Simulated assay, not measured.
Amino acid sequence: MPTRIASIEPPMSFPALVQAFFTDYLVEQRALSPQTVAGYRDAFTLFLTFAHQNLGKWPATMNLSDITPTLILAFLDHLEMERHNSVRSRNIRLAALRAFLKFASHHDLSALQTIEQDLAVPMKRFELPLPEFLSREEMLAIIGDPGMTWISRRDHLLLGLLYNTGARVSEIIHIKVADVVLDGAACVHLYGKGRKQRAVPLWKSTVKEVRAWLRLNPTMGNDSALLPNRDGQAMTRNNVTQRLSLAVIKASKTVNSLLGRHVSPHCIRHYLPFLTMSSHVKASVGMLGI
């Protein structure tokens, strides 16, 4: 009888690899958080768009062999020079590509040599700049007054919570009504990177404002976003950045040090956290009645 030769399955196509990377590897095997998966997705969207512009190929027609060190380096330069991304952001995008290439190396042995060359593209070294911070006067000017409109009161609570908790934007926009404890030891439960959870104490002034906000929005349920947009959905990162920028512009009319200054949500995080405040800062907080 003739010897039967075992059939060898052809390697997965590039679109199938990308789909398996996200659905099977990131979600099912590694069980990464939706925020982390979204970060990988954004990196791939940028990279595939750049590859299409430079190679003239749609993602559906690409091959692993198209991803060369030259293309990767050109993409990274594009991020820095044209999109004005920081070196840190550049390295995060590269880390996402590396994770995919390592995954792909287990599914397409014919591309091992190309993948090995791609993985040799190094991370870029950089010096950490001194963190920018806001003074108490600047922060209070940015928070401003609650105002009379629904939007102004929401923004006042948003900025106050950022100041009180030192939370990341991703943590703030995902706060639900049920995450806020107002009785007894008032606190807010935050869900951060890597599914880490923590409870942050709330100042008396913040508790008072949350109560007023909930009275203004009696239809909010426990699963409702505490800080919704006009459609009742959770705010996005862009929403928060835009509202903060408008608040800074308004505050700069009375605080000259804010004129022309870019204040990001992360800048507020550099203010000393409540639990590690110096006695001098705690005294300042006490003056606020919190």
Rank of each mutant, 00 (worst) to 15 (best):
N164H: 09
V27K: 12
A283P: 04
H107N: 08
A74E: 15
K250H: 11
A185G: 06
M287L: 13
G260N: 06
D183L: 13
I5R: 15
A96F: 03
A95I: 11
L73W: 07
A212G: 01
F50E: 05
G144L: 01
Q233M: 08
R136I: 06
H78W: 12
N239M: 11
C267V: 00
R98V: 04
P122H: 07
I151M: 14
E171K: 07
T3F: 14
V37P: 01
I143P: 08
N91G: 09
E80I: 04
Q242T: 07
N164T: 02
I143R: 13
P59Y: 12
H280M: 10
K176I: 08
S13W: 04
T219L: 12
R125V: 02
A95C: 12
L288Y: 10
M1Y: 02
N54T: 15
I268V: 15
Q197C: 09
I142G: 08
S105F: 00
L162A: 10
L26R: 01
M1L: 09
H78K: 02
L97Y: 01
I268M: 01
L140K: 10
F100I: 05
A74K: 04
R153D: 00
H262F: 05
M123S: 06
L26D: 11
K176V: 11
L109K: 10
L134Y: 06
R4T: 06
F50T: 13
T241G: 05
P201W: 00
I249Y: 09
